[in-house]
Every structure is written in C-alpha cells, then in structure tokens.
C-alpha cells in the first residue's frame, strides 16, 4: 500500500482499490443472519493475524453478490451466484441445526473446521442442499469466492510478497533473486534488519 501514490499504480487502480478498501461493512445483499454465518466461515477459510486490521471478507463477498457478476459458468445442478450462496448458507445452517442443534456460528473452531472439511469432501448431505452438492458449493462458491477476494486485497499481497499493481511502472530486473527497488525484499533468517531497511524505501 505504500506504493499507492507511486508510478506503480495508475488512476484506475487507485480508484478501484480505494473502493475495495472502503467496502461497506454492513450486509447489503445477505441478511444479517446469513452474513454472520459467512463471517464465521471466512474466519476459518482464511484465518487472519491479529496484528493488523482484518480484511472484511464477508463484506467483500456481499459486495460481489450486490454486483452479481458470476464466473461465466456453473455446474449443472447449481443455481446462479446469488441463489447459490443463499441456498448453500441455508443448507449448511439446516444441517447444523439437525446435527448439533445450533448454528455454525456457535460451534467451536475445531468443529467448524471439521464441518468445512466434510463439506469439502461432500460428506454433508442433508436434503436441504437440493441439486447443488455441498462439495460443489465449497469448491465453486465458498472457498473460491472467499479466497480469491482475500488475495485481491493489498494486505494479502504484502503478506505473500507480491509486487502488487504495476502500471505505468513495470519491472526491470527479471532474473533469479533479482528485485527492483520498488519491490519488497524477503526477510531471510538473520537478514530481517536488512529487509526492513530495504522495504522502507519500497514506496517510492
């Protein structure tokens, strides 16, 4: 984010990233109940560190649902984007009520993980899922949407060392272990200080 005002970001990029960072935190498409379940799921799909502001994943998913832009395909049996999320969250809640007599949000984290693992393997099979399998929901909607939205956020880019937006300024040094002065350095063991010093200069 330090590079926001540098030549690595064009105006269009600044505009849309600003919009993303300022995404409304209240649900606009989902109901508050659905939103709370989504928040609980997002915490498990992408656990976030406590030492920085959290990326509001549920809000970003909700924002995508407001825009209602699909992926350009869905498997036979799955409804469109909005209905898929509605139906999937509802089916999960119904199955949790049937199985544990409580909401997903009230389960402890390890049970939540267990449930998600079962969903991934297709082991949730309540009738409420209808024609869309739990496995398909996990793969194409739940994990897919949450993780791709997370890795579209500058906080995630910093975490993984991605150079981030790059235009009009691109890159020059292309070879092994080469880094432009406007890219973040990696902190290898024993060299954290050097990396920190280098990285202080990256924003230019």
């Amino acid at each position: 984010m330090a590079k926001r005002n540098s030549l690595s970001w064009n105006d269009k990029t600044r505009e849309i990233i600003d919009k993303r960072l300022n995404v409304p935190r209240e649900p606009r498409f989902l109901t508050p109940v659905e939103f709370a379940v989504l928040e609980a799921i997002a915490d498990r799909i992408i656990p976030q560190p406590d030492d920085r502001p959290r990326v509001p994943l549920a809000a970003l998913v909700d924002d995508r649902l407001v825009a209602d832009v699909g992926d350009g395909y869905r498997s036979a049996g799955s409804p469109r984007l909005r209905e898929a999320w509605r139906q999937g969250l509802a089916a999960l809640e119904t199955e949790m009520q049937a199985r544990y007599d409580r909401s997903f949000t009230q389960l402890d984290p390890s049970t939540q993980d267990l449930v998600l693992k079962q969903m991934q393997k297709g082991e949730l099979d309540h009738a409420a899922w209808g024609t869309m399998t739990a496995k398909e929901f996990f793969k194409s909607r739940l994990a897919h949407d949450i993780a791709t939205l997370y890795y579209a956020h500058p906080a995630a880019w910093s975490e993984m060392g991605f150079g981030g937006p790059a235009a009009p300024r691109g890159y020059v040094r292309m070879g092994y272990n080469e880094r432009d002065s406007w890219e973040a350095a990696e902190a290898s063991e024993g060299k954290e200080d050097q990396a920190r010093k280098d990285n202080a200069r990256v924003g230019r």
């Binding site: 990233i17 993303r20 699909g70 350009g72 395909y73 469109r80």
Partner: peptide, 28 residues
C-alpha cells in the same frame, strides 16, 4: 484497465452458462 485481477473480470464473458459432463469446463 487497472492492475487488478478482480476488477478486470469486466473483460470476461460472465453471462450464465451451464457446464456438464465428466470433466466440466471452466469458462469465463
């Protein structure tokens, strides 16, 4: 054009399509 994967999905054909078969295609 932004330097951004999410924003640039505006270039893709994201209209509704159904995929099927043993190896359903990923379109978009």
């Amino acid at each position: 054009f932004a330097s951004d994967e999410t924003e640039q999905s505006k270039l893709y054909w994201t209209d509704d399509r159904i995929v099927d078969g043993e190896n359903p295609l990923q379109l978009g």
